[in-house]
Structures are given as C-alpha cells and as structure tokens.
C-alpha cells in the first residue's frame, strides 16, 4: 500500500460532503476521480488526514443548457464531456481541449471539477475556463457563492476555493454564433503534460477581427491571459500578417520559466507558433460558421 492511512468519508449527499469537509481545515481533501490526488498520495507528496469521497453524488454529474448558459456538474467525467453532443454544439473549444487531458482511461475517471480544482498550470481546462469567462459555483456549510474563473486560479495547485468548500458546477456562456476557436498544445508525447497550450477564440467579419481571447497554459503559475495580444487583434485585418504580429506580442508578454522539460526561450517560441496557428484555425472556423 502506497498512500499513508486516512479517514474515509463516503458522502451520500452534498450536505454530507460539506459536513465531512468542515472542521478539518486543509487536512481534508475531496476525492472525485482521484486521477491527480491519488498519484500524489501514492508518492506520499500529500497525506490528507481525511478524504471525502463524492463519487456517489450522481446529481453532480450533468451537462445541460439553462437559458444562455451551459452548466456542467463538477462530478461530470471528462470522457462524458468528450462524447457529449451538447458540449460539441455549445462549447466546441472545450470539446477540442478535453481530448488533450491525459489518456482515455484517465478521462473515464477524471472529473471536470477535479481538474479545475487541482489547478495544474499546464492543464487544459483551466485555460479554457478563463478564455470563456466561466463561472464556478461552490458550496460550503455557509451557503453558495460564485467565483469568476479569472479569480479562481492563484498559483500551481492553488485556488481561491476554501478548504471547507466544494466546487459544484461550472457555468459557461453558450457559444456565440460565428465565433471561431482553437485549442492547441505541444507535449513531448501525446497525453503527457503539455509544455505550452493555447485556448483561442476569434470573432471576425468582412475581413476584420472584432475580438478574441488568448489564454495560455504552461507559461506561468496559472492560466495566463494576454490582454495586450487580444487588443492588438481588434480592428486589424483577419489574416496571417496580423496573426504573426499578435503572436509576437504574446511571445513578448509571457514570462515562462525554464525547467527539466524545456527552456523559457523554447516555451516562448511555442507561444509564438501556437498563437499564429490557433488564430488561423479559429479564423477558418469563424468564416465557416458565418
């Protein structure tokens, strides 16, 4: 047995889970898919005293449209997102990004909420959530609150979620008609942690860019949105020349660090290349959708 012993609480309701989390501070962790947590526990990099297992809370596993919003329950498995027609229609950026999350066996167990709450800065879904202006719904015994994705991610594996709080739902505005998108990343091997990823959206009409979002994974302690590059798109002709300039701005703005896997310079170069390529694909989809 690899992990240190812990007290196991199998929650049968959200209230049950919140009661399990209360009073333990940082010593209690939520066990959803466990695809990151159990790896860390096996290596004994973390030793939670209490695990609150929420796998029975099937009322937290759903994908549905509510007026102008796409609502995804926190316990929704990543493979359910992958095969969802609703996601493909209402959130194609997430549909594209989800396939980069680990491998199929990981996505069969791993959850949307778990991925976001784990807040790995190289992960795909946090970048998608920030790019799309997602809102996170959380519950604690004190009640419910909502957190904007932009305010949620703080640092590697660190969020503004309190230790007694449970992420219950992700809310994303339904895809606006005519908006293009692309998610791209570079990793040493398919399914590995990415070196750099980009979540891009683009709206363009009559050969002119109207707006866009550019959010990167792997170049900072959290998903990095490069507003200067986004602003440089607005009003410019939609095409490779503009995208090259925007890519140059993005590469200049990010501050990646060097590590065992890649140098900062290489990561910056990936930002440059991925930005240009992603915007080209987004433009193509934008034109096809229009």
């Amino acid at each position: 047995m690899k992990p240190a012993p812990f007290q196991y609480v199998r929650a049968s309701s959200i209230d049950d889970a919140l009661a399990g989390l209360a009073g333990h501070g940082d010593d209690a962790k939520v066990l959803a898919g466990g695809q990151s947590l159990i790896a860390l526990m096996n290596l004994r990099l973390v030793r939670p005293a209490v695990l609150v297992d929420i796998n029975r809370l099937s009322d937290l596993a759903y994908i549905r449209q509510e007026n102008g919003t796409l609502a995804i329950g926190a316990l929704t498995r990543q493979s359910a997102v992958e095969s969802s027609d609703v996601i493909a229609r209402l959130c194609p950026l997430m549909a594209e990004a989800i396939r980069f999350v680990g491998h199929r066996p990981i996505r069969n167990r791993g959850t949307v909420g778990g991925n976001l709450a784990h807040a790995d800065p190289t992960s795909e879904l946090p970048a998608v959530a920030v790019a799309l202006g997602a809102t996170f719904v959380t519950r604690s015994q004190k009640g419910q609150r909502t957190i904007a994705a932009d305010d949620f991610f703080v640092a590697p594996l660190s969020t503004t979620l309190a230790s007694n709080e449970l992420l219950t739902e992700v809310r994303i505005p339904v895809w606006p008609a005519g908006q293009g998108w692309a998610f791209m990343e570079v990793s040493p091997r398919a399914g590995d942690y990415a070196l750099v990823g980009v979540a891009a959206t683009l709206r363009a009409a009559d050969g002119v860019c109207q707006s866009g979002r550019l959010v990167y994974s792997g170049v900072g302690p959290r998903p990095i949105r490069v507003a200067k590059a986004e602003q440089a798109l607005v009003g410019c002709s939609s095409g490779e020349a503009t995208f090259r300039e925007v890519a140059e701005i993005a590469a200049g703005q990010v501050e990646p660090s060097s590590d065992f896997h890649a140098t900062a310079d290489y990561r910056r170069d990936l930002v440059r290349a991925l930005t240009r390529r992603a915007l080209m694909v987004a433009l193509d989809r934008c034109q096809k959708g229009a």
Binding site: D53, N55, S79, P105
Partner: peptide, 13 residues
C-alpha cells in the same frame, strides 16, 4: 465497461 487505472483508484471507490 470503461478503462481505468487501478493504481489511481481506491478499492472503496
């Protein structure tokens, strides 16, 4: 019916 890594799954789950 779905693949999963059993080293990343507690039996109790």
């Amino acid at each position: 019916g779905q693949t999963a890594r059993t080293c990343l799954t507690f039996a109790v789950q």
